[in-house]
Design a protein around this nucleic acid. Sequence first.
DNA 1: TTTTAAACGAGACGGTACGTCCCGTCTTGAT
DNA 2: ATCAAGACGGGACGTACCGTCTCGTTTAAAA
Lengths: 201, 201, 201, 201
Amino acid sequence: MQRRTTPDTGRRSEASRRAILDAAFALAGEVGYAKLSIEGIAARAGVGKQTIYRWWPSKGAVLFDAVLSLTEGREGAEGTALPDTGDLEADLKLVLRATVDEFADPAYDRPLRALSIEITNDPALAALYAERLERPMNELKKARLRAAQEAGQLPADLDLDVAVDLIWSPLLSRWLHRSGPLTHAYADAVVETALRGLYAR
Amino acid sequence: MQRRTTPDTGRRSEASRRAILDAAFALAGEVGYAKLSIEGIAARAGVGKQTIYRWWPSKGAVLFDAVLSLTEGREGAEGTALPDTGDLEADLKLVLRATVDEFADPAYDRPLRALSIEITNDPALAALYAERLERPMNELKKARLRAAQEAGQLPADLDLDVAVDLIWSPLLSRWLHRSGPLTHAYADAVVETALRGLYAR
Amino acid sequence: MQRRTTPDTGRRSEASRRAILDAAFALAGEVGYAKLSIEGIAARAGVGKQTIYRWWPSKGAVLFDAVLSLTEGREGAEGTALPDTGDLEADLKLVLRATVDEFADPAYDRPLRALSIEITNDPALAALYAERLERPMNELKKARLRAAQEAGQLPADLDLDVAVDLIWSPLLSRWLHRSGPLTHAYADAVVETALRGLYAR
Amino acid sequence: MQRRTTPDTGRRSEASRRAILDAAFALAGEVGYAKLSIEGIAARAGVGKQTIYRWWPSKGAVLFDAVLSLTEGREGAEGTALPDTGDLEADLKLVLRATVDEFADPAYDRPLRALSIEITNDPALAALYAERLERPMNELKKARLRAAQEAGQLPADLDLDVAVDLIWSPLLSRWLHRSGPLTHAYADAVVETALRGLYAR
DNA sequence: TTTTAAACGAGACGGTACGTCCCGTCTTGAT
DNA sequence: ATCAAGACGGGACGTACCGTCTCGTTTAAAA
């Protein structure tokens, strides 16, 4: 499905691959999921449809690679770790506010929404997503929490997977279903409540 | 969009309406979102396509009504309020475990998944969903939390909307993106962690 | 396949039918058989492809109807009988020369060539052609020969089918395979030789 | 286009050439014209597509060579001259009956039909066919008629080209368009009528 | 009780996109 | 240098649905 996984016979056109991924991402951003078509991607990329069908099993897989190649582009540069100033609450607020901003930008909102739909639809793609995108990102999140654990700010027996879900999934839900305003204030409230718990205050 | 909202000229065929909603729900459960079509719903319902287009603006709206009419069916019988034994934690676990079970049943999982996709896609439908389904359900959830507040189990200044999101959205996220096992144990862990917070223990 | 054979449910669009047949004939004349496509016919006719597939089983069937509707257009006006001046030889030469001229006109040569190819390919179409176009035309030809028979110019026991083939098939062969010049002189020579036979002179 | 015409640079693989022609002929016989493709021929011959495109300008040209190499295979053995027993009528009937039999054999009918279609379509191929296959065969036919002329059985001023067409084209037409039963009896009737003419009896 | 206008089932229509096949060209090793 | 293998941009295939648009045919309120 992608340069690194398949050993690559050496015949595949890198130019076409890039053009397809770029076109897919751009079109998803411009026309949205409902009007995103393989035909359209091929036309925009200046590529035959068969070249897409040859290398990707579905529209969702193309979109997945398009989003994946986006995150890989900035790997190493930034985003390779969550900020750690020692102040867990402030750091989390910073990150969640950034996520809120990203969701507010149509250039990201629409492709991510399209990918999310494909994942909801296709368990195989969901598994791929879980492995290739979700897990790496979760590791970063857990690393930050683990650092807090080691600093004695969080209990040692805290289940980090649950903790991560508690912090991040409210944003995801609000974003996907537009079930309420997705603001910096909301992000702050989520972080505060998650850290102290409902019982607290 | 539906019997109760539109005053109804009196001409509409209730039989067709029911056949359409039943067909939509059944087909969504059988073939999934990707292969759900208005053509298919009309055929299954034994109805002309125009009868669907006359009364609903989109496939998602049909699905919405189909799911809505489902919850209305059981209104009054059960689900009109969350259980309240006085033990908030136990009550929440009970409810979340039931939700986990519902998501595990393909007859519910698939239509709900299909509806979720439509909502992700269509802001207008999302607003309708928020008003007609999400808000009533959230009111029930908040009512239970408010009872706990009044019993002194939760702080008076707790933002109930955030609290509800904190408890329920992890399940929604895991379900939609299949990002991890969706078990009773997970539901329990979410409730415990949400109530006590990450700092606790 | 066509207005007259199928009883017609009354729903078919006559405008589309005509547009399709006209487009098919025109395109066959303009681009030739090799580049004649259903896609092209539909586009030229301003019609959805499905409207063609709904009513015709193959490209050849469309072309057949296009050619058929051409001959029907002039039925009654002229061509309803071969000329009969009493001079068989002169009459036949006249008809064959006209055929030669028709084959020389690209507006007829190319569609007829395309139809001929489809008939060569498709036995079902060949049968249809034999019944709907070939036989009526052969009846006209045989009628002229029969008149000559009755006038004592041809023997009573002459097999008219063979006679017709003897006169007309040389032109058809030369035309299809371009196996030699297709001229008025050739038409005359064929008529003379067929009438008198190889032994004669 | 073919071993004998091009002087042959010496680099060409004779094995590939034969495999291609055999595959083309066999496939034409098995799947018919409509489904005959260069891709299929290459696969069947175990040859790269480029090897076909390198040496032949079109699918029809391959088919032409395939048929041509067939007739060359039996050259010298038989068919190098028409039978001449002194009885022209009997000899012609013998030959035409053999032709009828050949057309009845799908292993010959289908490739020949495919080739005929290509010729109908492609004037260049028609010219090549006329020169390389039609003319040699016509020379044989005319040779037999010339012998009859010299024996005083046919008039000296008979146009042999027209005579040949008169005898052979009815069979060709019936075969191509399936416009009637193609039997030994028909072949006999054609020979008799052609020799004596329509006026006779 | 009869009229009459809407809603209905059916499905044809102009379209868009699907996923596949093949075109003719091109590139890459292996022989 | 030619070969097999096969990727490439492209065009057409025949199918599935889209949303709109007639068609008669129920059918239930108004006359």
